[in-house]
Design a protein around this nucleic acid. Structure first.
Lengths: 156, 156
DNA sequence: CGTAACCCTGACGCATGCGTTAGGGTGAGG
DNA sequence: CCTCACCCTAACGCATGCGTCAGGGTTACG
């Protein structure tokens, strides 16, 4: 019927310690306790823990989540609470889009670097030492190496 | 001619302290020192610091970068070094793609949640308290609220 | 030569998000 | 009644990536 803390942990992929922490921070409450003070959670707790995890993925720290929870609980009006939530989510949507763009740029750089490096295995003289890379002439398609490759060779 | 540590910091968006740290960790070396022991960097250091930043964005910790640098410097053969670099970048490319997929899912959830929440401002009775949300009937398009919305309301 | 703006080394501080240990109770099956 | 797996609270520990003094030189400009 109820979930013990270990069940909740398994179901969410978090550890028991993490769930305890969330409760300490006020992000989560057990529905009730057993005679022996065991925490007993309902399935709503599952939703809550997953929600916390998503917010963490969105880049919120636990104390920011704490703030949010307090705000939501304190705001009497549902409309007001919804408005605050929207503001937060709108900001996070923009941030997420920026992050995606950044990662896409990195993805492209990785792809370029991989194709550049693949030539090293076929065209390079096996005995050449690393420090000869900067003067390498064997990349006709891409005379100036990608930053991810150059960066690995500079020792200043 | 040369860059002082402050110039390098400004040019890369890092702090002086960060650059000192990178040098302590062996990720970076000053080309030389002035009479008064000032670090003097060439423009290669710029490339190097940007490279470090990119690797950090790819999710590498400074000690992992340290490992990588040691490996690259220690490997005599350029081909071997390139191979290691490729392995790393391939793995990071996959991880980056997974991360992008994850963020896109979050993006979609945020969009859904925002459209759901926008109805709250128009259809909700302004005086209703937050705890009445779970029984709200005013979202005909989306009877079951998105997890990002439900999660904010469960208090268990 | 003065002085403002930098730079040096060394070292302790800090916020985050749990991990881990300690010492002890609880609950369900056999 | 035993036992084993699980739970409790309290509290210290830790890795990361710098921030921030402290105490003292160095440079460039005028």
């Amino acid at each position: 019927m109820f979930l013990q803390v270990g069940d909740l942990a398994k179901a969410t992929g978090k550890t028991v310690r993490a769930i305890h922490l969330y409760e300490e921070l006020g992000l989560l409450r057990a529905h009730e306790r057993s005679k022996g003070r065991y925490r007993l959670f309902t399935e709503e707790a599952l939703v809550r823990v997953r929600w916390i995890a998503k917010l963490q993925n969105l880049g919120l720290s636990l104390s920011e989540i704490q703030e949010l929870v307090r705000e939501q609980e304190a705001s009497g009006s549902a409309v007001f609470a919804a408005t605050r939530l929207r503001e937060l989510y709108r900001a996070k949507l923009e941030a997420t889009r920026r992050k995606i763009a950044e990662l896409r740029a990195l993805e492209a750089e990785l792809e370029e670097s991989l194709s550049f490096l693949s030539a090293c295995n076929t065209a390079c003289e096996p005995a050449l030492p690393v420090h000869s890379c900067p003067t390498c002439e064997r990349h006709p398609e891409r005379p100036n190496a990608p930053e991810l490759v150059v960066g690995a060779h500079v020792s200043s």
